[in-house]
Amino acid sequence: MMPFDHVNAGSPGEAVDLLTSYGGKGRLIAGGTDVLGILKDRILPDYPDVLINLKTIPGMDSIKESGEGLNIGALAKLADIASSPEIKAEYPALSLAAESVASPEIRTMATIGGNLCQDVRCWYYRYPHHMGGRMLCFRKGVGPCYAVKGDNRYHAVMGGKKCFAVCPSDTAIALCALQAKISIFGGEGTRTLPLEKFFTPMGNVLRSNELVKEILIPKPTQETRQAFIKFTERKPVDFAVASIACVLEILGGRCMDARIYLGGVAPMPWHAEAAERIIKGGSLDDPTAEEAALASVAGAKPLKGNAYKIEIVKALVKRALLRRQ
């Protein structure tokens, strides 16, 4: 890698001070599984002067279950989240999502905060600099989105405008469906917002002097049924071609409430509200699931090479609602 300095932060406050004092030339590192790849390939024109290590902040990796819900420190490892018996029992969608990420070694290293903040996997965006030069594209502030006319098999079928890279986070859709909130710490103190509001078409709402501190998930009710299904070409390693997380409230055989989020298909976790509306209030049978599946992709605008994702999404919606694999 090209040189950079490295500083250990002792507290969130210190990390924020460091971000401020390096004035945009500092970059946070937690698990490092994403950021080091970015630096090795020098995909961005800017290269940091310093990496600010968050792992030295004490206590920010805790997983705390209470009667209210679950508090997960941003530094909690995906492996710990996936293997937590409490999360498996009460928040299976999250557990499955965490378990679905990459490989065991990566999950041992990678953090939940990093999983939410990771950069997109678009292969134009990630084109390695030493193979003829990075590709400057819309997301980097200069140039077109190459995916529009290029090979866009892994790109967005919904919600894409200027950049068609998809939000790569598996845990994001599970957490959105679980109505998680995200706690952000910055120069102006802490702000907490629904996780859904964290994501933007070009990334997230983090300001240059902010970091993710904690994820807060309300306790699901007794009647909650959760599902997470990720479609990939191979079982491990891959990012989602398409994925679904849903949290349903089932009472007396009827779906009283539903939250369905799709991954891998849009620049952000995609809230399939139309599908939710169809299943709310009724029983979950084949025709309803079919209808919900169609509704979930209504308005999708595939590019030349990714219409197949729409079919996959429809299958995932049906399977998640009907509890089939």
Binding site: W123, M131, Y154, K235, D238
Partner: peptide, 25 residues
């Protein structure tokens, strides 16, 4: 090997986008 024929770039030059069979498959 996925090549963009608009600009000649090979796109899947990494161990995630170039697919290989894993122990789990």
């Amino acid at each position: 090997s996925v090549t963009d024929r608009k600009n000649g770039h090979l796109l899947n030059m990494n161990m995630i986008d170039y697919k290989w069979r894993t122990f789990s498959d």
